[in-house]
Amino acid sequence: MEPELAIETRQLTKFYGKNRGVVDLDLDVRRGEIYGFVGPNGAGKTTTVRLLLDLIRPTRGSATILGMDVGGQSKAIRARTGFLPGELRMYDNLTGRQLLRFFGAVRGVTDMTYVHELAERLSAELNRRIGTLSRGNKQKLGVLQALMHRPDLVLFDEATSGLDPLMQQELYGILNEYREQGGTVFFSSHYLNEVERICDRVGVIRDGTLILSDTLEALQEKHVRRLRLEFAEPPGADFLAGLSGVQKESQQGTTVIALVQDNLAGALIEAARYTVVDIEYQERRLEDIFLQYYDTREEAHAAESSAQDTA
């Protein structure tokens, strides 16, 4: 029986000498989902992907892919996975077609129909030498080689860099179809809008540590959103006071800004007691959740450092 988790890591840790790569990473990526792995540059995204591909070895901890141990069964794992790095380097002296023939031969792909279908959808250049291709066209070849053998799991590390918006849309479509057919995608990115667009669940990594991992809906539920109310007359100073799930951030004249956790209805009922001129309610965007979480953690981190300094 196939394991439920496509990727499972436990306390996965990598140090490069004294430099931190990732620390105690516990990842659970379920089969058949697109898992967004987000974080700023240097957070540890690429280190994680390279650990999963057995390109680098962990300092401690374990990782399994499709139920197989990354260290001991990496060749079997790679037969069932595809990989696309952000800056794909391939053999410049080969044409795209020759590269795909080589990769296909090593992967045991005999029927190239699917590859040609994908190439057509992505308008990939197959007859020019790779060395003469633009970054975007190289990246298209990267997508083809990652998916050509219809793997069970693909690891994309900043995969859409270099692709124009139209091709990005096409790639999202291809990945959605791939997921519908049972494929799993580990999608590392720092472009939050694309993660929000295609991913089912999201993990956020910061300073090598996974700070949260959940479905997009759950993250959005937890997210505090800003409500701006404009009144005809200034409301009383006790406006919104004591209302659960809502916190008044500021009140200046006729303008009130509140942070709403989970009681928008309560806030609106309170507001309806006055003449409301305008309402603005912040959209639920992953970027805000991400920034909010980062800001909070930054403050906590600063406070912790300050306390340690004082002590």
Partner: peptide, 14 residues
Amino acid sequence: ERGTMDTLLSLPIS
């Protein structure tokens, strides 16, 4: 150094 080893070793080849 050319960066091609990562791609090569993503294939099922030890």
